[in-house]
Design a protein around this nucleic acid. Sequence first.
DNA 1: ATATAGTAGTTGCGTATTGCAAGCAGTTGA
DNA 2: TCAACTGCTTGCAATACGCAACTACTATAT
Lengths: 165, 165
Amino acid sequence: MKDAHRSGCPINLTLEILGDRWSLIVLRDMMFGNRRHFRELLTRSDEGIASNILADRLKRLMEEGLISRADDPSHKQKGLYSLTEMGISLVPVFAAMGTWGRRFLPVSEELSIRAELLERGGPAIWEDFMAELRAMHLGMPAPERSVFAELRKAYEDVMAAKAVP
Amino acid sequence: MKDAHRSGCPINLTLEILGDRWSLIVLRDMMFGNRRHFRELLTRSDEGIASNILADRLKRLMEEGLISRADDPSHKQKGLYSLTEMGISLVPVFAAMGTWGRRFLPVSEELSIRAELLERGGPAIWEDFMAELRAMHLGMPAPERSVFAELRKAYEDVMAAKAVP
DNA sequence: ATATAGTAGTTGCGTATTGCAAGCAGTTGA
DNA sequence: TCAACTGCTTGCAATACGCAACTACTATAT
């Protein structure tokens, strides 16, 4: 942000913003887990982010324009973080990374079911999901189809199948 | 690699391997710039990677299975790095990142022309490009179409247009 | 044979980032 | 009033990064 860019290559510029171990984790939880508050992002993350890292990443992602912050009317000290269009537009990147990870890395079934759904649905489901995210985060009118609900149901079905084998 | 994973989420596992500022830069140069030797990757990179970082990344990417190394027959000390199928399969990830970066970040025209081509061509061109990479890096039979040549020509055309305005 | 340039790295060292544990100040609800 | 909850901040140690110099070997030219 402050100092000059290493180069004008799109891959490089993307890495300058997202090229660390936590930024995409935070965005993933906001996007797929609908976590909008600091505490939710802090404690309900599978990976266990530290609070100072989370504070720093939220600040940087705001500076870069991927998320925004508003006061939560229900609690004066509570902030509500939202994805911007820039953040929502990362859906295809997440889909591509999920597809690659599922193919080559030792993923767990319950945590990769969403990636599988996004892979099978292709660009059509990504568009529907982004439309829904725009409704949830930007106040746009809600689309009929709820990909979010489909993703959650798929996850819960896997968990239920594991619990009762 | 050595210690346990933070979680089995595909996004997280991908970030554990590629979530830093340099790994994808190295892979990008191997993939789109056809840089196969240490010196090429070191000096012909727009971003200017340090030699110790490059050595470390090449080692880690080999350990993770994204690249392989062979002795270059023309020079006993020269190593030849190749992409594996795991590395080649990152093409859609690069394409998605390139599309996103081109839309939201201050990319330069000459360095984003390749991303634009990959975006316009869609999955069909990605497949052709991956087939060509398999020929260049894995010894598979070469496809008729050379996406690599198309990417290079597009870059050279932009540079020529800039030189003679 | 000797010199020169090129090969792939390694080493030292200072700075920046990360990770962990604890603490802080304001807010809410009982 | 007070405990629990809110979004952070601080201190400190470990790790990673970045730069410059340097090593060791190989090929080539004279």
